[in-house]
Design a binder for these strands. Structure first.
Lengths: 153, 153
DNA sequence: GTTTATGCAAAGGCTTTGCATTTCA
DNA sequence: TGAAATGCAAAGCCTTTGCATAAAC
């Protein structure tokens, strides 16, 4: 799927979600969604705020926080709490499920993918009578680069 | 392992850790470890602070935060960031590895265990040249109780 | 006797809240 | 027109920091 198609797709999903829940379709909300889907990777509110400030849409931080909640609720955005108090966000639609390796030394975040996690999700849900919506798997340790640096010292 | 043996074991581990890293063996540090291992389940700093205030040892919040960092560093305590900004902690020694189901409706946290996660850890580490230390797997969704309530309404 | 840890309070950083103003329906 | 969203600034909450005091080594 090319970027333009993806934009159209997520805009439609968001629009239907807002309608279904009786929320208003404000230009700010769609502008935020557009900006979120214009980039790959993780971002925090401050970075998103900065990116939008330099463009046509200047939205308040409060609106960014509110809109993130909506986008998370309709599964267009995922929230991560890697470390510290600051939340990291990431677009979640039409992307392969992936999880994260987090280096406890340098803080770098790498992505990886293992289909076996789907089995675990399924089993856990069945055993506990839990309706699974999404998961977060973080593997913490030392990245290859920091392992090398440690050897040298 | 009975509780007393476990206490002795983790106290020794902590003592050796402090020695190895040139940290002082203060009574506060051991009192905190004792209190942490006196209870099951998750706790936050405020709860731990409250529990210790009612007992012989009255420690400052700053010392609790500092000591948690040490206990995490020597793998006696695990930190969780389930939701919100507040960290949850949990003793980590001599307990079966487990992961968490988190209800997005009521916030309840259930534990579950699936040995297949070990394979994923292993594979991810090998493929990415990553030295795995620990992982956190959270499955988010709706718990059985909240599913029932939703049906009724 | 030094150096490190503690305790207290203040500062910090991210997030939420309150309220006046705007705008969608 | 009425209800909901926005923007701004203030307030909140958890956590970290600075510094004087106390204690480990």
């Amino acid at each position: 799927m090319v970027a333009a198609e993806q934009q159209a797709s997520v805009q439609r999903i968001f629009s239907e979600y807002l309608e279904r829940h009786g929320h208003r379709k404000t230009p700010e909300r769609f502008a935020i969604l557009t900006e979120v889907y214009a980039h790959d990777g993780h971002f925090d509110i401050e970075r998103l705020y900065g990116r939008m400030k330099t463009k046509k849409y200047r939205v308040s931080r409060a609106t960014l926080y509110n809109t993130m909640d909506l986008l998370i609720d309709c599964d267009l955005v995922r929230r991560h709490r890697f470390t510290g108090t600051q939340s990291q966000f990431e677009k979640a639609h039409a992307f392969g499920q992936h999880d994260h390796l987090i280096c406890t030394t340098c803080g770098a975040v790498q992505e990886f993918c293992d289909p076996r996690i789907q089995q675990i999700r399924k089993t856990a849900g069945e055993v506990m009578g839990f309706e699974v919506r999404y998961h977060t798997l973080q593997i913490h340790g030392t990245c290859a680069s920091c392992q090398e640096k440690r050897q040298l010292s």
